[in-house]
Design a protein around this nucleic acid. Structure first.
Length: 426
RNA sequence: GGAGACGUGGCUGAGUGGUCGAAAGCGCUCCCCUGCUAAGGGAGUAUACGGGCAACUGUAUCGAGGGUUCGAAUCCCUUCGUCUCCGCCA
């Protein structure tokens, strides 16, 4: 969502920055609607002012018993209303059109974001860790998991169809251990507040973070108009929807382990094998709500928190800066963390950390007021995965596999595994 | 699920059709005064948008949306939320 005042001030700049997202020039159309709306508003408000004045006069006249005068004034106001009702209808139309357009424009990306059409143009920021040298051919996670009888796609398909999985025994435990470990690290070392939120939400929350109105197809919706959250970013970011937050409370940092639900409508045929892309998965999410001047540094901090998990698990990864064509709707700037998967012999996304500026804050009306200041400002929001549990599970499996097909438990997870050091058959 | 009550400013709380953006108290900010000591006095204290260089001014908002009316915090409808009782339930 955008501040029309900014677009008015510099429409060329707005179009220039939108062009980097492949958007056509929009400022002109928006400003025409805006101008029309303001013109109508001025006229309507003048009418209302007259009406208010006359109504007071009517009240006065009636109290003093001058009912003829009151009746005459009433007739006048009625006539006035006939004239303004058309204007009001037109204004409602124009405002609705304007808002609909504004709601569908993606966030302006930072100038620092590299130019490019798709993920191939993402920029390598750094590589961390060395992929392990295997003296056997490393397997993919689904081969490992199915052989151990601990990862059951067939059973899940009977229950729920494709893109679901059932975990058993050591892998189920490993999944829980990963979540615990991540939450403990983020709360204990990075100051995030552990949070449990609903996974069913109303449309307002999804509008706030930008999933609606444009990406409804990617969401699961219940018969009574709830949506299943695609990420806890939705609930954590909107925890303060509509609030004016005291500046002293910033930054607010929240983390949650939640189920995430995605219809994967646009991903037919992609990653159909294994649990890379599921309709339901677990994820530890990080959300920061900060003052504007703090948001850029917070992105680095958040990314570091997510990286710390990979480092502690001793998983090789690389940090990518997303290019203009790959960056999400609400983000100004995004780092993806990609973990090394020896079975697939490639890096795969396991975390995405984004700074959204005031884009989401405007949509959910989240402001703050500095101490002693009269004016409010919109907060800045950031979100990142810290990390996706399913993909972290895959990464541990593939990187820690043994020649016999068992999985060694990473040191960092041992305290959470109840004495299990190697995951064998379930 | 059934029956009922309620939703007012940072908080408490008045206000059932007209000068109510809203009494009063608390809190907060600023100023003044002061040795009958954790006191007294005064002023200020919502948000958004429109117009204006500005001072300022207009409009809207009493959970949200719609309606009735010349006029709505007050009446009607819808919706969301809270509470109470019953039912059910992890």
């Amino acid at each position: 969502m955008f501040d029309l005042k900014l677009i008015r001030q510099d429409p060329e700049e707005f179009d220039r920055r939108n062009a980097r997202r492949g958007q056509p020039p929009l400022a002109d159309g928006l400003l025409k609607l805006d101008a029309e709306r303001r013109e109508l508003l001025t006229e309507i408000q003048a009418g209302l002012a007259l009406r208010n004045e006359a109504s007071k006069a009517i009240g006065l006249a009636m109290r003093e018993g001058r009912s003829d005068e009151a009746e005459a004034l009433k007739a006048e106001v009625t006539a006035l209303k006939d004239r303004t009702s058309d204007l009001e209808a037109r204004e409602a139309e124009v405002t609705a059109a304007l808002n609909a357009q504004l709601a569908s424009i993606p966030n302006l990306i930072h100038d620092d974001v590299p130019e490019g059409a798709d993920e191939d143009a993402n920029e390598l920021v750094r590589m961390v860790g060395t992929p392990r040298a295997f003296d056997f051919a490393p397997k993919e996670h689904f081969d490992l998991g199915e052989a151990l009888g601990a990862m059951d796609f067939e059973a899940a398909a009977r229950l729920s169809g494709s893109r679901f999985v059932a975990l058993r025994g050591g892998l189920a435990r490993l999944s829980r251990a990963l979540g615990q470990f991540m939450l403990d690290t983020h709360t204990g070392e990075f100051g995030y507040t552990e949070t449990v939120t609903p996974v069913l939400v109303r449309s307002d929350a999804l509008f706030g973070t930008g999933q609606l109105p444009k990406f409804e197809d990617d969401l699961f919706k219940t018969t009574n108009d709830y949506y299943l959250i695609p990420t806890a970013e939705v609930t954590l970011t909107n925890l303060h929807m509509g609030e004016i937050i005291d500046a002293e409370r910033l930054p607010l940092r929240y983390t949650a382990l939640s189920n995430c639900f995605r219809s994967e409508a646009g991903a037919a045929g992609r990653d159909t094998r294994g649990m890379i892309r599921q309709h339901q998965f677990d994820k530890v999410e990080l959300v920061s709500i900060v003052a504007p001047e703090a948001s850029e540094a917070e992105l680095e901090r958040m990314t570091k928190a997510a990286e710390t998990i990979l480092q502690r698990l001793d998983l090789p990864y690389r940090v990518m800066k997303l290019c203009s064509g790959d960056i999400g709707f609400g983000a100004q700037r995004t780092y993806d963390l990609e973990v090394w998967l020896p079975g697939q012999n490639r890096y795969r996304e396991i975390s995405s950390c984004s700074v959204c500026g005031d884009f989401q804050a405007r949509r959910s009306n989240m402001r703050f007021r500095a101490r002693g200041e009269k004016a409010t400002q919109f907060v800045h929001t950031l979100n990142g995965s810290g990390l996706a549990i399913g993909r972290a599970l895959i990464a541990v499996m593939e990187n820690y596999q043994t020649e016999t097909g068992t999985i060694r438990v990473p040191e960092a997870l041992k305290p959470y595994m109840g004495g299990i050091e190697v995951i064998g058959e379930a």
